[in-house]
Structure formats: structure tokens, C-alpha cells
Write a protein that binds this DNA or RNA. Structure first.
Length: 608
DNA sequence: CGAAGGATGAGGAATGAT
DNA sequence: ATCATTCCTCATCCTTCG
């Protein structure tokens, strides 16, 4: 049993609690002070004003005005194509490209290049793949409308197309985006980034700022209004349409799109034969420290994982269904730079069928319900009304109900993860059953003021501990003296629990979690398991500015692991209201994960 | 008795597999 | 083409508490 592995062992180290608290206090106060600085930065870049537009013309025209096209060219494009957004945009881009293409820029702009080439985490990688850009680029052969310069941006220090950067920047500027933001986006998106991708990045950044709690209230509505009405998703969709039309068949977006493996076992799971072809390409710059581990739903809207991959150094994500670790399915993508050799699972191995996990249900389980695995545990549970309807539907028959009834009952049971708890009686899982299925200790989320509804919600949003622990197990030999962890979007502490159950000592854990109830859960678990290390909580990723990270890293010498799964609200299939992709209100916090990881990497590389 | 918070139930579509 | 799956949101009702 690994359930209570000590807290008693390894007492040879002198844990000076008072010193640590002092460090903690210093960090806290300094980070709090940084808020004003951060706020100032946000307010001073002026993207709100640069994005504002005259509101006198029709909405159809406005959407192009806000992109930076002149009213004359818009009028011309509408005249030629009618009020069809895609066609008009197409024409406008063509005008623009034709305007831009004849001129030859004499040299690279001195202001722009340093900011691009000085990035320590991307420049080397960029150089490696530059050679292929031209061959792969399908836009350059599209001579008809010369879309090439705006379709992609090139990071090339020499050669004939050195004006590509500037053209892209110029184009973005014409769309109303400040040069600074365009430059950052190009730097972050990499050399192959297309225009829609760059626009994505900038919009996401702007939206993140619109949500910034420290942004003055009078700026927020303006920003949001602009983003909602004219920018963001709508714009992106239009550009996507454009991409598909313009790209020749041979290198299609479909081929570039990440495909989910079948069976979904990633780079391998303990219970299945190892996949035959595991090629793992880790660019040199991405190899730790720090190690990082990012998680999100596998079944996200199209293109989301491509974007995630692009923002996380082009590392191939590992898609794993937790059905190979537990009695419940959980299809997730994990993107990390961990070694994948010599992994080992948590012991004891958890039950892997419904009957093993819920032995009492076996007695009542009808033979025609052939489920052996539960579906994904979500944040909401089936209603009493539904279980009542099912009972009434089934109890009318002494024997097996007719096929139609079976079909209906099975559909609902799968949809809501209902289990048989009595004769003709189904019920949703209890919270402690969900805890067990996800690999948490019993009562992990119980008590301390959390409501039952919120328990389900927190659990539904969590890691499957056994799955994550399998991936993290390689850290045990690498860090025999324990590790420092930066845990973003910690939730109920799935990462922490996984590390603890692996027997990896937690020296310093900086945990960022919005929900107070969740922070209490982690704090309580921390105390109950007699952790000797240092737990520092933040409630908002926005607070982790570069200065703040600098201080944290300075205080205990850097992070060994950055772990977290950013919000999936706007990616998950069950969201019928706001499945908006990575630009969504919550899911756009992914970009904060990237920002923070990037800062940690660059600060730590400087410290070394 | 009213405010606050918890519980309830109604509510499809995107996506990939076949 | 059909089928299966999906870390969900929101308005409303109910309970609790002062």
C-alpha cells in the first residue's frame, strides 16, 4: 500500500520552518507590490485605443475597417463581390498583397529584428526549421494573387524575403494591432505562423487583458466590445476559411492536424503492449530544466491541439485514455518534456472494471447492460427525475425489457454515468466513488465548507491521478532529494497527489488556484499528509508576473517541474453554451501557462 | 422575511470512428 | 451516411440562516 507512505522517513534534513515562512512572506509582499507595476504595463500599451474604430458605417463594413482596410478598398471589394464576408476579405487581402509585393525593402528594420532573434527559447529552434520553410510553403506558388507575404511570416535573417517579417507586421498594424503586439505574436508563434494564427495570439492576449482584474473598469467594456463584435473568433473563422481555400491539396491543413491515436495509449501504458512506433522529437531547447507537464481534454475543437503544440515548442502531445489505468474513461492530451523510458505505475493498481470498482453494483447489474468501463466523469450528475424515469421504464417488465427500452436506458446511463444500486434502480456516483476512480484518497474533497455540487465540479475538472503519476514516475530517480514544483491551475491538487503517491518529496510547491474551496482542499491535504515542505498559494495566474517569478526562483533556486492543465470550459464537448476554443473566456488562460513557463525557462537559464 | 448559497433539471453540437 | 462520446452553463427553485 502506498496510501500513507510516511512523512516520517527522511527526517535527516533540517527543515527550518521559520526561515521558510520568512521567505514566503518576502515573496508574497514583493509580489503584491508588483501588482501596480503590472497594472501600469497593461494600461500603457494602448491597444484599446488603437483598436477603436469609427462607428458610423454599417456593421458589415466596420468589420473590415477594424482590420485596417481603407473604406475605399472595402467599397471596391464589396462592389466586386457583394456582401459576402469571405469573398470581400479575400479581395481585400489580394489588394493589400498587390500593393505590398512590388517594393523591395532595402534591409531589415533595426527595431524589429533584435526583439525576434533575441528570444532565447525559440531562436535556435527557428533556425533549424528555416530551411524547410520555402519548400513547404504553399503560398509562394500561388502566383495569382500573391498572398504569400501575408499568409505566413518568415524569420529569416538574410536572403531575399527578409521583408516578410515587416510585411506581416505592417499588415497586422493595418489591422489595428500595435507593432509591439505583432512582434511579440510573431516571436511566440514561430516562423511558420500564418496570419490567422498571429491574429489568434493577439486576440487571446487582448482578451486575457480584458479579463485582467487590475485593468481599470472603464477600459474593460470597451475592449470586450471590440473583441466580441469585431475581433477574436469571428475574424479567426474567416481567416481559416481563407486558408482552406487558398491552400493547395498536397499540404493540407488536415494532414498537419494532430490525429488522436487508436488505441489512445500515448507513448505507452503499463497494461497494453508498447506501441510500435514511438518517435519522440524533443528540440534541444525544450529539454529541462525545468520539466513541464501540460494537460487538457483530447477532444477539443479542431485546431486547438495544433495551437497548443505550436505554443509549447512543437512537442508532440501524448494522448492517453485513463481507461487503461482505471474503471473510467478520460481522454486527455498531455504535452511534456519528460523522459518516457522506465516509467512505472502507482501501486496498488486501481480497479479497472466497474464491477471491481463498485462490487456492490454487481448484484443489480442487468445482463443487457454490457458496460465494463464508465464514461468520462464530468462536473454535473444525472438528476433524480431521470433515475425515476428509468426505474419506471424498467420495472414494468419482469424479464428483460424490450430492446427499445434497453436502448433508452443504456443511452441515459452512459450519458450520465449511472450505476445500478438496487432492483431496477440506477443512481449517479457518490463523490467518494469519484474520488476513488480518479485516484484521490477518500474524503479528499469532503468537508471544510465545500458543497456537494462543488465537490462534483472540482472532481470533474481534475486529473486522473494514476495516469498522471505514470508519466511523472520518471522524476523519482532524477530527484531523490525532492523537487520544487510550480503548479498552475492546481484544482484539487492532482499533480501534487500524484507526486506524493510516487514517493517524490515536495520541497517547495507554488500552487495557483482560483477557487478558494480548492485551495482549502489542497491545504488540508498538505497538512493531513504531514508534508514538510513549503506550500505557497496564489489565487490568480495574473499575479505571477516576471518579477514575481524572479523572486520565487531566487528564493529557492528554481523550479524542477511546471505542471498544470489550463481551463477546458471552452473546449469541452459538454459545453453547449460557450465552446469557443482557446479564445474562450476561461480557456484563453492557456496563454498564461505559456507565458509563465517561458518566463521560468528564461529566468532559470539566466540563473545557471 | 429576505438574502445568499446550494440543488436541480433542461438544454445540442462538434468531432471522430465506422 | 449513422453512431458514440463529451474535465458543461444557466435559470429557477429550494433551503438555510440571520
Amino acid at each position: 500500500m502506498d496510501k500513507n507512505p510516511s512523512g516520517e522517513d527522511n527526517d535527516d534534513i533540517d527543515w527550518d520552518t521559520e526561515d521558510e515562512l520568512e521567505i514566503q512572506d518576502t515573496v508574497f509582499s514583493s509580489c503584491t507590490n508588483l501588482r501596480t507595476t503590472g497594472q501600469h504595463v497593461v494600461c500603457s500599451n494602448g491597444e484599446a485605443s488603437s483598436s477603436s474604430v469609427p462607428f458610423q458605417s454599417s456593421k458589415f463594413i466596420q468589420q473590415f475597417v477594424v482590420m485596417g482596410f481603407t473604406e475605399e478598398s472595402i467599397a471596391k471589394a464589396i462592389e466586386q463581390n457583394g456582401e459576402n464576408s469571405d469573398l470581400v476579405l479575400d479581395a481585400l487581402l489580394t489588394f493589400k498583397a498587390l500593393d505590398d509585393s512590388p517594393e523591395e525593402q532595402p534591409s531589415t528594420s533595426p527595431q524589429l529584428e533584435p526583439s525576434i532573434s533575441s528570444d532565447d527559447s525559440f531562436s535556435e529552434y527557428n533556425e533549424n526549421i528555416l530551411d524547410d520553410v520555402y519548400e513547404e510553403d504553399s503560398w509562394s506558388s500561388d502566383s495569382d494573387n500573391c498572398i504569400n507575404p501575408v499568409g505566413r511570416c518568415y524569420l529569416n535573417d538574410e536572403g531575399s524575403s527578409l521583408s516578410g517579417n515587416e510585411k506581416t507586421l505592417l499588415f497586422l498594424a493595418n489591422m489595428g494591432y500595435p507593432e509591439e503586439e505583432g512582434s511579440i505574436a510573431m516571436k511566440r508563434c514561430g516562423p511558420e505562423a500564418s496570419l490567422p494564427e498571429l491574429v489568434d495570439f493577439i486576440c487571446a492576449a487582448q482578451m486575457a487583458r480584458a479579463e485582467d482584474p487590475y485593468l481599470p473598469e472603464d477600459v474593460k467594456p470597451k475592449l470586450k466590445h471590440i473583441l466580441n463584435d469585431f475581433g477574436g473568433y469571428k475574424k479567426r473563422k474567416m481567416y481559416n476559411g481563407l486558408c482552406k481555400r487558398k491552400k493547395p491539396r498536397e499540404i493540407s491543413a488536415e494532414e498537419e492536424t494532430i490525429r488522436l491515436p487508436k488505441p489512445m495509449i500515448g507513448f505507452g501504458v503499463p497494461t497494453e503492449p508498447v506501441p510500435t512506433m514511438v518517435q519522440r522529437f524533443l528540440p534541444k531547447k525544450t529539454i529541462g530544466p525545468p520539466f513541464f507537464y501540460y494537460e487538457n481534454v483530447a477532444l477539443a475543437p479542431k485546431g486547438v491541439w495544433d495551437t497548443i503544440k505550436r505554443f509549447l515548442y512543437e512537442i508532440e502531445p501524448e494522448f492517453v485514455d485513463s481507461r487503461y489505468f482505471s474503471a473510467t474513461q478520460r481522454k486527455r492530451g498531455y504535452l511534456h518534456n519528460l523522459p518516457i523510458e522506465n516509467r512505472f505505475p502507482l501501486f496498488p493498481l486501481p480497479p479497472r472494471t466497474i464491477h471491481e470498482a463498485l462490487p456492490l453494483s454487481k448484484k443489480w447489474w442487468p445482463s443487457w447492460d454490457t458496460r465494463t468501463k464508465l464514461n468520462c466523469l464530468q462536473t454535473a450528475i444525472g438528476s433524480a427525475k431521470l433515475t425515476d424515469k428509468i426505474r419506471k421504464a424498467v420495472e414494468k417488465y419482469d424479464d428483460e425489457p424490450p430492446l427499445e427500452v434497453q436502448k433508452y436506458v443504456l443511452y441515459q446511463c452512459k450519458k450520465w454515468n449511472l450505476v445500478w444500486v438496487g432492483r431496477n434502480k440506477v443512481a449517479p456516483l457518490e463523490p467518494d466513488e469519484v474520488e476513488m476512480l480518479l485516484g484521490f484518497p477518500k474524503n479528499h474533497t469532503r468537508g471544510g465548507g465545500i458543497s456537494r455540487t462543488d465537490r462534483y465540479k472540482s472532481l470533474g475538472n481534475s486529473f486522473q491521478v494514476d495516469t498522471v503519476a505514470y508519466h511523472l514516475s520518471v522524476l523519482k530517480d532524477l530527484f531523490p532529494d525532492g523537487i520544487n514544483v510550480l503548479s498552475l491551475f492546481s484544482g484539487i491538487g492532482g499533480g501534487e497527489v500524484a507526486l506524493y503517491r510516487l514517493g517524490i518529496r515536495l520541497n517547495n510547491v507554488v500552487s495557483v488556484e482560483k477557487s478558494e474551496a480548492n485551495r482549502n482542499i489542497v491545504r488540508s491535504w498538505w497538512e493531513q499528509t504531514n508534508q514538510r515542505g513549503n506550500l505557497i498559494h496564489f489565487d490568480d495566474v495574473q499575479l505571477l508576473s516576471r518579477d514575481c517569478l524572479e523572486k520565487l526562483i531566487g528564493s529557492f533556486g528554481g523550479f524542477d517541474l511546471v505542471i498544470g492543465g489550463s481551463p477546458c470550459n471552452n473546449l469541452a464537448g459538454s459545453n453547449r453554451v460557450s465552446r469557443d476554443g482557446l479564445e474562450g473566456k476561461e480557456s484563453s488562460l492557456f496563454f498564461d501557462y505559456v507565458r509563465i513557463l517561458d518566463d521560468v525557462k528564461s529566468i532559470m537559464s539566466r540563473h545557471r
